[in-house]
């Protein structure tokens, strides 16, 4: 992993059209500004995990009908 030290107001370029600017830096967090083309998805790291969980969870009712959920959860010893 490339590690670069930056100060607020400075930026980092990735390729030709992605720019990450350090807007503000505090004791426990930094504020970033990200300029990227519409076609490049930009998301917080933890969003990716939630996204994957949501995609898996969205299939729950395809596997178990609403009327059978209680039985399935009961069998799992809720």
């Amino acid at each position: 992993m490339l590690v670069i030290r930056r100060r607020p107001g400075q930026s980092v370029l990735i390729g030709d059209d992605i720019e990450i600017e350090i807007i503000e830096s505090g004791p426990s967090r930094v504020k970033l500004g990200i300029r990227a083309p519409q076609s490049v998805p930009v998301m917080r790291g933890e969003v990716r995990q939630t996204r994957a969980e949501n995609l898996a969870a969205s299939r729950t009712l395809d596997a178990v009908a609403p009327g059978e959920i209680a039985a399935v959860l009961g069998a799992a010893r809720l």
Partner: peptide
């Protein structure tokens, strides 16, 4: 909390 029931795995 959203639940996830995947076949063959505990919810």
């Amino acid at each position: 909390a959203i639940l996830s029931l995947v076949e063959g795995q505990p919810p």
